[in-house]
């Protein structure tokens, strides 16, 4: 099932399907958020935003408004 990253529950491993076009899409790509990449949702800041994810052994944080551009599948 397709979903965007801001809607994924914690402690899930998901695969990135695509990164939508946005002013920051090149920056998301540069951080390694590319299609086919597996990521794990790690934790949320208090109030649910921003979120932290793990990819390739390192931890990235992003705001929900940034995560919504990333389409993933379980």
């Amino acid at each position: 099932m397709l979903n965007t990253l801001d809607h994924i529950e914690l402690k899930r491993v998901v695969e990135i399907v695509s990164v939508d076009h946005s002013p920051i899409s090149s920056k998301l790509t540069e951080m390694g958020l590319v299609s086919g990449q597996l990521i794990t949702t790690l934790f949320k800041a208090p109030f649910g935003d921003p979120i932290a994810i793990e990819l390739n052994g390192s931890v990235l944080t992003l705001r929900l408004e940034e995560a919504q551009f990333i389409e993933v599948k379980a």
Binding site: P23, I24, K27, L28, M31, P50, A52, S58, V59, L60, T61, L62, R63, E66
Partner: peptide, 9 residues
């Protein structure tokens, strides 16, 4: 320029 918080922990 839009501020964003895409950073490593």
């Amino acid at each position: 320029e839009k501020g964003f918080l895409l950073m490593e922990l």
